[in-house]
Design a protein around this nucleic acid. Sequence first.
DNA 1: CAAGTTGTTTACCGGGCAGTCAATAACTTT
DNA 2: AAAGTTATTGACTGCCCGGTAAACAACTTG
Lengths: 197, 197
Amino acid sequence: MPRPREFDEDVVLDAAMQTFWLRGYSSTSLSALMEATGLQKGSLYKAFKDKHSLFITALERYLNEAYRHHRDRLCCSDSPQQRLRQWLGNLIQVYSGYSDCRGCLAVNSLVELAPHDATVKQLLQNYCARVRSLLTEVIAQGQALGEFRGDVAASDLGLLMFHLLMGLMTSLKAEVPPAVLDRQVDLAMTVLAPQPS
Amino acid sequence: MPRPREFDEDVVLDAAMQTFWLRGYSSTSLSALMEATGLQKGSLYKAFKDKHSLFITALERYLNEAYRHHRDRLCCSDSPQQRLRQWLGNLIQVYSGYSDCRGCLAVNSLVELAPHDATVKQLLQNYCARVRSLLTEVIAQGQALGEFRGDVAASDLGLLMFHLLMGLMTSLKAEVPPAVLDRQVDLAMTVLAPQPS
DNA sequence: CAAGTTGTTTACCGGGCAGTCAATAACTTT
DNA sequence: AAAGTTATTGACTGCCCGGTAAACAACTTG
């Protein structure tokens, strides 16, 4: 019996996510969200409660997509080294493609909101832990195959790669040229390489 | 002939910097700045033009202090490896000490403002370049002494350490335990170590 | 077609925002 | 002490913010 929605929730959520991604949470006004989504204020509030809830939903969407992307790239059939190299290289390519310097929404939200927003913090802690564990697993596999150095714990190397990634995402904000960042991928592989003893 | 100021500009600037550092730029209201500095709105505007100019001045202050800190730590008389290890370890210790997860104002501002604020972007590009060059120099010295691997360009290793630093500053936002981050320092040293050939 | 349910629209709200200004206070110089 | 200069104060402004609510529209079900 109800009147059906006139919009596709996924499309609207995507538009909201883009807006938060581009401008950050507190600098995104409701009128900006209305413009981006094409919805009136009332419809937004009816569908998503309020600005904060809308952000949380959009962030969850981003994190789910991002995690799926990481998992697909890091758990394919290539060798661990190839997977890692292509994963990193691909991320640099994709995120350098955003010429607006938007960086990574997870990093942006971690920096802007996590200290003051327990919900956001927990979502991001969870996401970070899962990505780190993907990385650790790939590196452990590489160690077992002799592709990576085995003299250091895989979890520590995984965290190092994760820190490198966050550093790269931050470098995007300063418009460091992609070519420079690409060299960091090669360097990362060099650094992970087994020790000739 | 003029009436003298009733406040110490350095003290006020420091209070403003702390506030921006803690809450970010756009989430810091003028009333918060008034409370933190103890000044009335009019005095703030008289002395610093407007909110944005006050932020720029506070940021410049932070960057100058931070750079001086880096330079002092990275250009002392210890061995390059010791300097690097202690520099990183000290940063982790100091920044983990801020239990409010404020992180690093340079990273925070890079993420929040650089994409939309040309002045901030340039200040931070400059700062990043200078810190990177400090790191590159220390590493080049270590390479010359045989303390660090010489098979990779010092500038790339310097950037890697810089990215590690930014990653660490971001991990603070997720409350990663200092002990975990400390292990990244050891790992960084392992990774920089010469290759036994 | 009537009743009921939900989505959409629009006008509206109080509040807090950045920024201004005129009045006043404090000090130096002559 | 008078004149001149600048700092401080506090009231004020207009705007935009997030959020609400009432009127209206669209659809399903009986």
